[in-house]
Design a binder for these strands. Structure first.
Length: 765
DNA sequence: CACGTCACTGTTTTT
DNA sequence: CAGTGACGTG
């Protein structure tokens, strides 16, 4: 009996041991999913599978790396390195490079990130003389991306719902833009993120013998976070599993939060339909969180209509109630949170690394960051403007890309005049137009520039020639040196380093430091690869870095508070979690509150957030929030109300917080008060919220009993969660609903439909 | 061609 | 408030 199986509970063990056919593991939050995946792979290896016959797809590079490390500990690094483990994007890139001669690309293709894609589209809209108000960049980009992920070619696009919608918005040229975009990427020999998936799909479509080859090779396929797969991914996985039917997918429909990116929750909901002989395993015991947290999360997710049945439970301690924290304004929120962390750590109860601050959108990080900074609390922010998105880094990487792929137009345009070489916008606009007209890359257009346009001045031609000669020489250098030497050469020869050094301002020095950090990163890359006996070329470095998302740099896991979006927190856990800015319009976001499908996704996101906490959760909202440069009033999120109040601790103010918003003092005053607070901050320690109230089953203030329609009649006094107290003055029965006219004390007379309003009302006796 | 100023406008989430 | 784009001047 192998020892690792003893470390699993019955459901986990069953999932690990079943290796006869397709299987779906529905893994509730905190139910040991990663453990199952890791042990499953070990189990496969123990049962005769060879590492190179196993394909394991994870959602992030980080997840892949961590799993690989865990497995390496058991089976040794050499065998672990043979596993095909990585994200869809990285695995497919590997396959594409191996089979490159069967595609329309060349081996040295580069990757366009989101900014590059946006710029390409922007150029096309400009080229085609289209109105950029109608052809909103974000919309156009997301349409193209959506089409690619749904396997809709430009030819098929006209018959889609999106196209109908585009036509309504007078976007008649979407198909042409889409087609032009594809062509541009092609002439640039560049693939965007979606292409890595789409081109793999097209490759298999065109070369069925490759499906055979890879489906034979991958004897066992594992896919993590299956609920977040999109159509392309789904289809490719299906092809790859077509031969052996050994497909093991793990996921949790309740945690599907990437529909905006094309993820189709149906893929997991319909798994059994796709694979009739599939076995289903449910991991329902949560090992992460207290009972209160798990039960509260269940309360919320129960509101979603579409989901697979499962009952997540915890056998951990009951735990403290969830603290609902109200603040007057967002700055107060940050202040209180920082103060609470400060005090708890000062008391010696906790470490900084035990805390995470989660938020719906990146913009919320700033005020939190400031408050932490003022208290000198160490923190790290995940995501956001990642290291690789900084200008100075993108510039250097553009040079690196250009040496590998001179046809990379976006890289070319980015650095052709940085540092200044006297090649301005006018020149580049001309060249770009010529490139488009001749269906050539910019590089190849410049080569024949005199032929295309004899009016261009010799001085400009010379400047371009100098630039391209330099790039070519850098390419030759890179071809015969390792990535570090190449990057150093690039940074020096291009003049980027000199330009950065010239700027003596504080920000300028910061940029220089960043550039040096990049160089260090490359150096590290080279050393690690060479230590393992591998080559470390610039091309190899770029492959790795182009799919990296910034926060995956080896963060020192030292004692710091973590700040991140809820999306970024998926898969992680923290002893103490603050969920910040839980307000209507922010969470759920304005947009998603409009449709029930999107609202359900927001609710799942809330579920993910709540289930990150192991011991203690604070759900925080403010009455005023800084938005678009000014303070705007805010209301607590509906999601808070979806949690049974017996799991909630409202602090001294009690549940009254959910009554109509009180008078808010004029916004300007907040800022002043806060400036004072800042001055006194060290002198005036804020008490922590106090010990959280314990939840004792069967006790506590339960939410008032649901109001039933028969309780309502003319004259009934009610309390509405949003409008406060009021009296029903008219009661009019209609076909399938009742119209209530209510005089509210604070907000005056309102007419509400009973069907919708009743959930928000209580009877006042 | 480079650089500064000014008005506008908009926010989810990411491989 | 910030990031972007348009416009005018050396």
């Amino acid at each position: 009996m192998s020892s690792y199986l003893d470390e699993l509970n019955d459901a986990q063990r069953a999932a690990v041991e079943y290796i006869d056919g397709p299987a779906l593991v529905i893994a509730g939050a905190g139910s040991g999913k990663t453990r199952v995946l890791t042990y499953k792979i070990m189990h496969l290896l123990n049962n005769g599978y060879k590492p190179w016959n196993i394909l394991a797809i994870t959602f992030t590079n980080k997840a892949a790396r961590e799993m690989k490390e865990r497995i390496a500990k058991q089976i040794g690094e050499q065998d672990a390195a043979q596993l095909w483990m990585g994200t869809f994007h990285s695995i497919f890139m590997k396959i594409l490079r191996m089979e490159i001669d069967k595609t329309d690309y060349q081996k040295n293709f580069t990757i366009y990130d989101a900014t590059d894609s946006k710029n390409v589209v922007k150029g096309i809209i400009k080229d085609m003389n289209l109105d950029d108000k109608i052809y909103d960049l974000r919309t156009v980009c997301s349409r193209i991306s959506g089409a690619k992920n749904d396997l809709i070619s430009p030819e098929q696009y006209e018959s889609t719902e999106q196209y109908a919608d585009d036509s309504n918005a007078k976007r008649y040229k979407m198909v042409d833009i889409y087609r032009a975009y594809m062509r541009k990427c092609q002439t640039s020999n560049a693939m965007d993120f979606d292409d890595l998936l789409l081109q793999t799909h097209l490759l298999f479509l065109k070369h069925p013998e490759l499906i055979k080859k890879y489906s034979d090779k991958f004897r066992y396929i594992l896919v993590d976070e299956y609920q977040d797969t999109n159509s392309v991914q789904y289809n490719i996985v299906k092809s790859l599993a077509s031969l052996h039917h050994k497909l093991f997918v793990v996921g949790d429909d309740a945690q599907s939060i990437y529909a905006f990116r094309g993820a189709r929750i149906e893929n997991i909901l319909n798994f059994q339909r796709d694979y009739k002989e599939a076995k289903i395993f449910k991991l329902e015991q949560n090992y992460r969180s207290t009972k209160v947290i798990v039960n509260a999360a269940n309360n919320v997710i129960a509101k979603n209509a579409r989901q697979l049945k499962k009952e997540v439970f915890s056998e951990n301690e009951t735990g403290d109630r969830i603290r609902v924290l109200e603040s007057a304004a967002d700055i107060d929120e940050s202040y209180k949170i920082a103060a609470d962390i400060y005090n708890r750590v000062a008391d010696g109860d906790e470490k900084y690394s035990d805390f995470a601050l989660l938020y719906r959108s990146h913009s919320q990080s700033r005020s939190l960051e400031e408050s932490l900074h003022k208290r000198q609390i160490p923190y790290k922010i995940f995501g956001g403007l990642s290291f690789y998105e900084r200008k100075e880094i993108k510039d250097l990487i553009a040079y690196m890309k250009l040496t590998q792929n001179g046809n990379d137009d976006e890289a070319f345009k980015r650095v052709v005049n940085y540092p200044k070489r006297g090649i301005g916008d006018t020149t580049m606009d001309k060249i770009t137009a010529l490139a488009t007209a001749n269906n050539l890359s910019i590089w190849n257009t410049v080569v024949r520039l005199q032929e295309f346009d004899p009016t261009i001045s010799p001085r400009t031609i010379n400047a371009l020639a100098q630039f391209m000669k330099m790039v070519y020489q850098l390419k030759l250098f890179a071809d015969s040196n390792d990535a570090y030497k190449a990057t150093l050469q690039i940074a020096n020869t291009s003049g980027v380093l000199k330009d950065l050094e010239a700027d003596k301002s504080v920000e300028g020095q910061g940029r220089l430091e960043n550039a040096q950090e990049l160089l260090n990163g490359v150096k590290q890359f080279v050393e690690t690869r060479q230590k393992d006996g591998n080559t470390a070329t610039l091309a190899e470095y770029l492959e790795e870095v182009s799919l990296m998302t910034g926060d995956e740099k080896n963060e020192d896991d030292s004692n710091k508070v973590s700040l991140m979006t809820i999306h970024a927190s998926k898969g992680l856990e923290f002893k103490n979690v603050f969920l910040c800015g839980v307000e209507e319009g922010l969470f759920p976001s304005q947009k998603s509150a409009e449709s029930s499908v999107q609202l359900e996704e927001e609710r799942r996101l809330f579920y993910v957030a709540v289930t990150r906490a192991q011991k203690r959760l604070v759900i925080s909202f403010a009455r005023m929030r800084f938005k678009y440069g000014q303070l705007a009033p805010a209301q607590p999120s509906r999601f808070i109300k979806e949690i049974d109040t017996k799991y909630l601790d409202f602090g001294a103010g009690g549940e009254s917080q959910f009554e109509a918003a009180r008078d808010i003092p004029y916004a300007g005053r907040f800022r002043k008060t806060f400036a004072e607070n800042d001055r006194n901050i060290a002198a005036r320690p804020v008490p922590k919220f106090g010990n959280f109230k314990k939840y004792v089953p069967g006790s506590g203030p339960n939410r008032a009993a649901q109001v039933s329609p028969s309780d309502l009649k003319e004259g009934t006094e009610i309390k509405h969660s949003r409008f406060g107290r009021g009296r029903i003055v008219a009661f009019e029965k209609m076909k399938d609903d009742t119209k209530l006219t209510i005089d509210f004390i604070n907000v005056g007379r309102k007419v509400l439909m009973q069907k919708y309003a009743i959930a928000d009302m209580q009877i006042v006796n």
